[in-house]
Every structure is written in C-alpha cells, then in structure tokens.
C-alpha cells in the first residue's frame, strides 16, 4: 500500500500563532494609547490625589469619590447640559448635513465649489474656532451684535454673559463646525449608492421625496448610524471651544462633561474625583454606543447586493 507509506503532513503547526504575532504591535500601541489611560483613571478614581504631591502618598479613599458623585448637583447639571447640548446640536447637524448632501449630490455646475466651502469649518482647529466665535459674539466689538443692530435693529446682547444666550452661542458654533462632518459622510454614502437601484426606483414610480425617504436614506442608514455615533461621542469629548468661549460659564450654563472634569481636575485640584467623573463619562459613552450599535447595526446591511 503505497499510500500508507507516505508521510502525513500535519494538519496544523506552530504557524497558527503567526497572525497574532503580526497584530501584536498594533495591539500594544492600542493598549498603551487607549486602555492604559482608561485603566489609570479608574485606578486614580479610588484615590484622593493633588497635583504636585507624589502619587504614592495619595490617600486611598475607596468608593468615596463615587458616592460623592451620585449626589453632586454640579455633576448632574453638567450631565444635563451635555445631554441638552447633544440633542440640539446633533439633531440640527444631522438635518442640515443630510439636507445639504441631498441638494449638492447632483453634479450641477458649482456643486464642487460649494462642497469645498462647506467642509472648510471642519479643517479649522477647535481652539481657533473658539477664538473666532468668541470675537464674533463679543458684546461690544462682535459682528453678531453689529449686524443684528444694523440689519434688524436689535439691541446689543451680552451673548456670552447670559446663561441662555451663551448656551445658544455654543450650540450655534458647534453646528457651524460639525455640520460639514455629517455632510461629507452622507454625500460620500449617497455617491456610493448603485445607480441602477436608484433608476429602478424611478421606474417603479418613486418621486423625489419617496426616493429619498424610501430608498436613499434607508440604504445609507448604516452610514447615518456611524455618523450619529461619532457625533455623540464627540459631544462628550467637546472641550476646547467652550473652554475658550465661555470657560463653562456663566455659572455652569455651558459646562459640558469634559470641561467639568477639566475644571475639577486642574482648577479645583481634585484629580481623584475628576477621574471618577471621567469613569462615569466613559461608562455613559459606552452604554450609548453599544445601544446604538445594537439598534441600528451598521454591519447588518452590508452585502454585495
């Protein structure tokens, strides 16, 4: 029996570990860059530590920071400000971004010029955005007051000194900067739609509105979910613009979560407590992300159809 004399090639060998070796460097970098700070802040949240003192001498306080957190009205307020800010900005940004993308999707004359102009705000650093809008909203020399006065005869307002107006100002600034982000993602999605499917809907008798709501938007729903998710996470990270425009004030009217954490950590020198709030923030973002992914799984509609 010649066949049995032949040596058998082993089905598997040590090479099964090879792929893991290949991804190991990336995993290490990811861990150092992402997981380590998270774990570090989790660790820190169990201590009472002040900047300038050695970390070793920080006092272990157990769950004290978390217990304090639950009943802290300031934390609750900044969470509420963040949620309110998120609801306003994201809903308006999604609406404007999608609407603009649908209008500028066709290759009409000048569309590419408009597209370029629309995405300019995205390229400006948040710090610069904060500075620009702080001057625009300035009570005495700001353009906003100037044009409201000359065009509509509206009295000058102290935009960044009034709780309601300051909140409106940061919402407007955020919309200005981040609508292009939605726009650019949606327009990329729309342009990737197979033209034959759109033609089929045309033959099936769909009018312009029906084509948008029954075919185009459902087909890019996964992209919309991802855009929504990224904006949501951004809202919980937003810091620079408010820091420069209002510093969180007046009162806590514009103090979003990240800014609140920053103020607690570096103004109030409560690093342990700030870490505990940061852990809460991570938990909130995590829960929101997972639930959005579960509701509108962006991967489930992926196929070669």
């Amino acid at each position: 029996m010649a066949a049995t004399d032949r040596t058998e090639v082993p089905a598997r060998d040590y090479r099964v570990v090879t792929p893991y070796l290949f991804i190991a460097p990336a995993v290490l970098v990811m861990f150092a860059g992402l997981a380590f700070p998270v774990l570090q802040s989790l660790y820190l949240s169990f201590y009472d530590w002040k900047i300038g003192t050695p970390l070793k001498s920080a006092e272990y306080v157990g769950l004290d920071n978390y217990i304090r957190l639950i009943s802290d009205p300031d934390v609750r307020e900044s969470l509420w400000v963040t949620i309110r800010f998120g609801l306003w900005t994201i809903s308006i940004e999604m609406f404007l971004g999608i609407a603009l993308a649908l209008l500028l999707e066709k290759p009409i004359r000048g569309a590419s010029v408009f597209r370029t102009i629309f995405i300019l705000p995205l390229m400006v650093s948040p710090v610069v955005v904060g500075l620009i809008w702080r001057y625009l909203f300035d009570a005495r020399v700001g353009w906003v007051n100037y044009y409201l006065g000359t065009w509509f005869g509206i009295e000058p307002q102290v935009w960044l000194g009034d709780a309601e107006l300051a909140f409106f100002a940061i919402v407007l600034t955020d919309i200005w900067q981040w609508t292009p982000f939605i726009f650019i993602i949606v327009i990329a999605g729309l342009q990737a739609l197979p033209s034959e499917v759109l033609e089929a809907s045309h033959v099936d008798g769909a009018n312009w509105w029906q084509q948008i709501f029954l075919v185009k938007l459902p087909m890019i729903s996964s992209i919309l979910v991802i855009a929504l998710l990224m904006r949501l996470i951004d809202v919980f990270r937003a810091l620079e613009v408010m820091y420069i425009m209002t510093g969180g004030g007046p009162g806590r009217a514009t103090e979003l979560m990240s800014l609140h954490i920053y103020n607690r950590a570096f103004d109030a020198q409560l690093l342990g407590y700030a870490s505990a709030i940061a852990v809460l923030l991570i938990a909130i973002v995590f829960v929101i992300s997972i639930s959005i992914l579960l509701i509108g799984n962006p991967m489930k509609d992926k196929s070669d159809v």
């Binding site: 197979p194 499917v197 033609e199 089929a200 008798g205 029906q210 075919v215 087909m219 196929s303 159809v305």
Partner: peptide, 25 residues
Amino acid sequence: AMVFQSYALYPHMDVAGNMSFALRL
C-alpha cells in the same frame, strides 16, 4: 417594467417588499 443587469434590488427590503414596491407607491 425593467430588469437590470445588476438586479438593482432594494437591499433594505425583503423579497415581498422589493416586489410590491411599485404597487405600494
């Protein structure tokens, strides 16, 4: 009625939804 080379089915609708789309419209 037209049948396209790539079939041009609506990926977010099931078979019944695809077939009935024109009638529903």
